[in-house]
Design a protein around this nucleic acid. Structure first.
Length: 426
RNA sequence: GGAGAGAUGGCUGAGAGGUCGAAAGCGCUCCCCUGCUAAGGGAGUAUACGUUAAUAGCGUAUCGAGGGUUCGAAUCCCUCUCUCUCCGCCA
């Protein structure tokens, strides 16, 4: 959520910045709502004030043993007036809240303009895409050849966009998770955390998935439960600090979690229908940071670097892009995408997305820290990034480390996690 | 699943229709005293919103959440959420 004060004090700037994210704020209707709210709030509070002072007078009169009936007659009408004023104000407030909750975070000044992912700016390329003296296969071919990857079996069990795996491929997925988490806790200073995979509406509202993106989520709506499957560990883990006031010396909080992620992928019909690129269920290692506001831009660089380290250690060529305004996520002020080279597609594909949410989520979650300079609780800044998307990393390794006979060489850093194995063969 | 108890400020914990944004203690801040240390004395110490030049004043809201009763609710009633205890079941 944006700072309502900013909307009141500098609406023009907000409108302009929202436009960069392709959000058109209806200024006149917003201003009108805001004006009505203001005057109605003053009226309502005056009525409340009058009720309070009169009630107090009644209490005092009663304590003195006086007849309070005349006083009661005087306030007879006040109750109804107040009730209708409060009801009207509440309605207005709800409308404003709805509007506010649907407004995206403002983009940072360093974010390039643009409409779509085609306008994202490349920041750097790392590594050389491998050269093959044979026609490289994609992970689907490779997986079927190895016998471990089965989309038909998954379709039988669940439908489209699921996969079953068996054998060394699964072991490698587990190895990747272990390797990534260990790197982050041992070298990058993160604390490993465990969190629920099912969360409530408040939690999803806190990070910004609700109310706007309900169609992207899997919903458990039974007699006794109203829960959602997490689309990313960002949701439960960022919400660790919801409602809290964190002591200054505890910041920054750095959390790493491995969870499965569940996405309905509504609206992506026909996109990446083949293979493991876009699934309803996938594994991800997620980095979350909760930091002092003045540190969040630096923390974004740092966190992105942590994700990059994983790619580098795995020897996977990638490029780093900064998302343009039009491609930037709802809650993010600035996002770096890391795109890994996939020989099967002959292109770079997203494998990590690292974002600074500034105080946007913190305001929704009421997550604060005590600023020693002011002594007051102030909103924290939150960040998150994939470190990395495990399913896609598995694909990337299969395609980049394939050998002419369809076998897969296992990257050095993963071998200790795979009983010293060096290759995956049928 | 059955029975019961509870949710109050940064923390502990009183309050059981009226002057309660809320006693007391702890913690924290400032001041005094003190040669260091320890101890002591005094004052202050929630958040959001509105009004405002103002972090000054004033007003409003907030005692788990949401409704209700009442002139007036932390306190009474209803619904929900969560926590704890006992029993049952269970990876």
């Amino acid at each position: 959520m944006l700072d309502p004060k900013l909307l009141r004090s500098d609406l023009d700037t907000v409108v302009e910045k929202l436009r960069i994210k392709h959000y058109e704020l209806d200024v006149s209707s917003f201003s009108e709502l805001e004006e009505r709210r203001k005057s109605l709030q003053v009226d309502t509070q005056n009525l409340q004030s009058e009720r309070n002072s009169r009630s107090k007078a009644i209490g005092e009169a009663k304590a003195r043993g006086e007849d309070i009936q005349p006083l009661l007659d005087e306030v007879a009408q006040l109750g109804n007036q107040l009730k209708s004023a409060e009801a009207e104000l509440g309605e207005l407030q709800d409308k404003l809240d709805d509007l506010l909750m649907g407004m995206p975070n403002l983009p940072h000044d360093s974010v390039p303009a643009g409409d779509s992912e085609d306008d994202n700016e490349e920041v750097l390329r790392w590594g050389e895409p491998p050269r093959f003296d044979f026609e490289p296969r994609d992970h689907i071919d490779l997986g079927q050849g190895l016998g471990g990857m089965d989309f038909e079996c998954a379709a039988k069990l669940s439908g489209a966009r699921f996969v079953t795996m068996s054998g060394d491929l699964v072991t490698m997925q587990r190895a990747l998770i272990q390797f990534m988490i260990n790197q982050h806790i041992l070298e990058h200073g993160y604390t490993e955390v465990y969190a629920p995979y099912l969360v409530n509406e408040a939690t999803l509202t806190g990070t910004g998935q609700l109310p706007k993106f309900k169609q992207d989520l899997f919903h458990i709506d039974s007699e006794n439960h109203n829960l959602y499957l997490i689309p990313t560990a960002e949701v439960p883990v960022t919400n660790f600090v919801a409602g809290n006031i964190v002591e200054a010396e505890q910041l920054p909080l750095r959390y790493v979690a491995h969870t499965p992620c569940f996405r309905s992928e509504a609206g992506s019909y026909g996109k990446d229908t083949r293979g493991m690129i876009r699934q309803h269920q996938f594994e991800k290692v997620e980095l979350v940071q909760v930091v002092r506001p003045e540190n969040s831009m630096a923390a974004l660089e740092e966190l992105t670097g942590h994700a990059e380290t994983i790619l580098q250690m795995l020897g996977l060529a990638y490029r780093k892009v900064v998302l343009c305004g039009g491609d930037l996520g709802f809650a993010s002020t600035k996002t770096y995408d890391l795109e890994v080279w996939l020989p099967g597609q002959n292109t770079y594909r997203e494998i990590s997305s690292c974002s600074n949410m500034t105080d946007f989520q913190a305001r929704r979650m009421k997550a604060r820290w005590r600023n020693p300079e002011t002594g007051k609780p102030e909103l924290v800044h939150t960040l998150n990034g994939s470190g990395l998307a495990v399913g896609r990393t598995l694909i990337a390794i299969m395609e980049n480390y394939q050998q002419p006979d369809g076998s897969i060489r296992i990257p050095d850093v993963l071998q200790p996690y795979m009983h010293g194995k060096t290759e995956i063969r049928p």
